[in-house]
């Protein structure tokens, strides 16, 4: 999975800045997406393109349980969030509806990847290639459980393995 990076070099990006509360009344996902990141970066919509990845620091998606947050980002074309760590409800919301991949990275990847870099994520090898800089980093593997929900295509598609 290839895409370009939009980098927010900070911790604790909360779901209120990803999609401010006033838009939680919006039922249409396409309209919701027009307000994504409005609380954080007014230039987001001029930057983001289909297939992009967001890179950020610790505790990404903290705060409110609003699933509108991963939905709004995915409807802007964002396919994955790469972060040093995630808040758990955002993490789970991202995979439950198969909206985007929450990928935990280490400090090397966080420091090494810059805004605009072209990245290739290989989930099967738990590897992130930085094509722009010709570097490779490890991603933290998904837990077995999360991996299975992702592989199934979301919470409603998931069935436990049969004996």
């Amino acid at each position: 999975m290839k895409g370009n990076i939009i980098k927010y070099a900070r911790d604790n990006i909360d779901t209120d800045v990803i999609i401010p509360g006033q838009y939680l009344k919006v039922h249409d996902y396409t309209e919701l997406a027009t307000h994504a990141m409005e609380g954080l970066d007014p230039d987001f919509h001029s930057k983001v393109k289909e297939g992009d990845f967001i890179l950020s620091g610790k505790n990404f998606g903290c705060g409110s349980s609003r699933e509108h947050a991963p939905i709004a980002l995915s409807h802007c074309g964002v396919k994955a969030i790469l972060a040093l760590s995630f808040a758990r409800i955002f993490y789970r919301n991202s995979v439950d509806g198969a909206f985007l991949l929450p990928i935990e990275i280490d400090q090397d990847a966080y420091d090494g990847i810059s805004e605009g870099d072209e990245i290739d994520i290989d989930v099967s090898k738990n590897e992130i290639k930085n094509i722009t800089k010709n570097q490779t980093y490890k991603m933290k593997p998904f837990s077995e459980i999360i991996g299975k929900i992702i592989a199934a295509g979301g919470l409603f598609m998931y069935k436990p393995d049969q004996d």
């Binding site: 349980s65 609003r66 699933e67 409800i89 789970r92 919301n93 439950d96 509806g97 837990s143 459980i145 999360i146 929900i149 979301g154 919470l155 409603f156 998931y158």
Partner: peptide, 19 residues
């Protein structure tokens, strides 16, 4: 606290898959 996909799952089944 849960997200909307999980809300639907609980409405439909009264259960949740949880780690």
């Amino acid at each position: 606290g849960i997200g909307t996909s999980e809300v639907e799952h609980v409405l439909a089944s009264q259960t949740l898959w949880l780690e």
